[in-house]
Design a protein around this nucleic acid. Sequence first.
RNA 1: GGAGAGGUGGCCGAGUAGGUCGAAGGCAGCCGCCUGCUAAGCGGUUGUGGGGAUAAAACUUCACCCAGGGUUCGAAUCCCUGCCUCUCCGCCA
Length: 422
Amino acid sequence: MLDVKLVRENTAKVIDALKRRNYDPSILDNFLKIENERRELLRVIEDRREQRNKLSQEIARLKRDKKDASSILNEAKNISDSISEKEERLRLLEEQSAQELLLIPSIPHDSVPVGKDEAENVEIRRWGTPRELDFPPLNHWDIGEMLGIIDFDRATKIAGARFSLMKGMGAKLERALMNFMLDLNTAKGYKEIFPPLLVNRNAMTGTGQLPKFEMELFRTVDPEFYLIPTAEVPVTNIHRDEILNENDLPIYYTAYTPCFRREAGSYGQDTRGLLRQHQFNKVEVVKFVKPENSYDEHERLTNDAEDILKRLCLPYRVIALCTGDMGFASAKTYDLEVWLPGQQRYREISSCSNFEDFQTRRAGIRFKREGKKGTEFVHTLNGSALAIGRTVVAILENYQQKDGSVSIPDALKPYMGIEAIK
RNA sequence: GGAGAGGUGGCCGAGUAGGUCGAAGGCAGCCGCCUGCUAAGCGGUUGUGGGGAUAAAACUUCACCCAGGGUUCGAAUCCCUGCCUCUCCGCCA
């Protein structure tokens, strides 16, 4: 969420940001109106409280001296009554103000291309050349089923649509990829984390999945938990409501977790194959950094994700999302898109975002500078490094051979122990 | 699942017949003093968030003793609910 003060005192800047994001700036009007009334009322209430506190002290003094306090006591009671009346109104205003504030998206960084939708995203760079095939490429689901390593029919029997059953070398490929990615990330200084996969409401709210995206989440009943849609949630929440020391930063984490998503509203999209599942594996990286470093860290985080694709020799491109296509909380996002021969196009395999202080303000993650008073909000970044299911897709499709086998990328051979899946 | 105990500031730890308690004391931190170094010692200081005031401070005020309600003129202290932690028994990967 944004800083209330910023919205209040620098409204023009926020309006400009909303316009660039293709949002209707009038969503601010209500917020500002509520905020004004809230502050006015707050001042009145605090004034009354001061009066009451003084009277209470007076009462205490009188009682200690065994003197009569009944008249002043009455006065205090009256003030108290009038306070609680106003407090009710204040509570309502606070609630509304907070709700309105949560609807305002973050401010895009100046370097983010302005645009309406994904059509105006900007390609930053390309790496690798798609292989020339002397045979018609197959889709990964055909490859997977022919090799007997992915079983969609039985997954449907066990769970339902949008689930998959990995078998034999397919299952091993998943495991090989998570180890490969974790090993690579930890070698770069990311600390490995294995977090809870079910989290409480506070955690989901802290990173912004709630209340806005309730429909995207799986939830348990009694007791109530949410299944994480990404490791970003539990890992970012590691430091929720903490005040870190300046020299604790930067903090780099990497975590492998399964991810669970309802995919509500995506009916008809990517219904076949592994691309869009209710459950998928992902290795995530999360950074907590000082504000002045966050854009530098963003580039490096993106490079780290790219490095995995390079080592797997998978052609990809880097896309800067435009203002209209960026996520609600992000100030800048690069998507990594990998080449899929089966679809003859690039598809997202990683998303690397800088949230600046948008998440940490909400989650209460601050730090203290050496020798300075007060606290500042930490900046957070995260990215997939990488989505494993989609990496499997990319490997199957890019490494498919004419005879129907799939060779194993060199970097993975130590993890797979074989040269090819036949 | 059964039976108990408890959640206080960066940490440890006081504070229950409700009243100058934002909270004693200790440790850690910071500033100064002292001692030729080190250690010790002495004095002072150190929470977070919001509002007002200010050029900015100083200043002032409100809130915060797990969370949310309640009682009261007044609650860290009393009552209810929830969450969490710990100990013992049972069960279990």
